Simulated scan of single mutants.
Amino acid sequence: MSLRLTPTFRDALAAQPGRGAAARPLAGIWVCSGSPLVAEICAGSGLDWMLIDMEHSPNGLESVLGQLQAVAAYPMTPVVRVPTNDVVTIMQVLDLGAQNLLVPMVSSAEEARAAVEAARYPPRGRRGVGSALARSARWNRVDGYLTDADAHVSLFVQIETTEGVDAAAEIAAVDGVDGVFVGPSDLSASMGLLGQQSHPEVVAAVGRAFEAVRAAGKPVGVNAFDPAVARSYMDAGASFVLVGADVALLARSSEALAATFVPAADESARTSY
């Protein structure tokens, strides 16, 4: 039996709706709940892609596996953000069957090369070989997986510091880096503007990273949950944008229900646990 894997996020970006400069940016949702059921609900939303987060969410290998399985039947591309730029962690997540990775806190070309090496088999990298045992190759049911593994995996790195912005051109130029994602939250903290993702200096730094990555010929993305900010980044050249998160949508929507149906006096008397 021979099986085929789905196209990667790199392929999805290359096939963006529209042509050239008119291509529509791909809109995605951050999936942080750790729930396969919630991930599946999001997968049927009509958005283009989702980020399953292992860095700031209660996600381990088992829950990521469950979410990848839950969304596999839907036309949405899942990307997994690993918690750290670690060769063992990257190997394990790839062996789960994740085809698209985002590696956080990459601030230099050297760190970007380390991520690429972790995602590639020898002699080009350091990924451990276990395809016969793993979902990545569907237990050796994908013909030629070992020799064609690079075609089945896309790798994106995340710039989240001032050092990363300064090195954005060099990071984007690393062979094997398929795109760069800019994180305004940690970037604002790195700039001494904690919690001020929309501060003009932070927005300007994001713009500088955009220019450097695009000049290197790579797609660039960002997260922006404010629709106006998201559209401004799309207009500035972002090819993929996270426009919301499952937990944030649930939090704000449940608050809106409370504001509508719970008297203010009762609401203010509640204790937070």
Rank of each mutant, 00 (worst) to 15 (best):
A12P: 04
R113T: 03
G44S: 10
G128W: 09
D246R: 06
A23I: 02
R231V: 01
A115Y: 05
N223W: 15
R214H: 12
E117S: 10
A204I: 10
G66L: 05
V262R: 13
S272W: 07
S45P: 02
E117M: 12
S35G: 05
A15R: 11
A205G: 10
R127V: 00
A251H: 08
L3N: 07
D11C: 05
W49C: 05
E55T: 04
E170F: 12
R4Y: 05
S253A: 13
V116S: 03
G18Y: 07
A205T: 09
S272I: 02
R120E: 01
W49T: 03
S188L: 12
L133D: 02
E160T: 05
Y273L: 13
V93E: 01
V38D: 10
P25E: 02
R124S: 07
V177S: 14
S107Q: 13
F156M: 14
H199V: 04
P227V: 00
A259G: 14
S35R: 10
E111W: 06
R127L: 03
D48L: 10
R270W: 00
A256S: 13
I90P: 03
L187W: 14
S136A: 15
T162G: 09
V177Q: 13
P83Q: 12
R120V: 00
H199L: 09
G176S: 08
A189E: 13
T77Q: 14
A251V: 00
L26A: 02
P122S: 08
A109Q: 09
T8Y: 12
T162E: 15
R231L: 07
I52V: 11
L194C: 12
L65W: 11
Q69E: 08
L242K: 08
E111M: 14
M1G: 14
A14L: 12
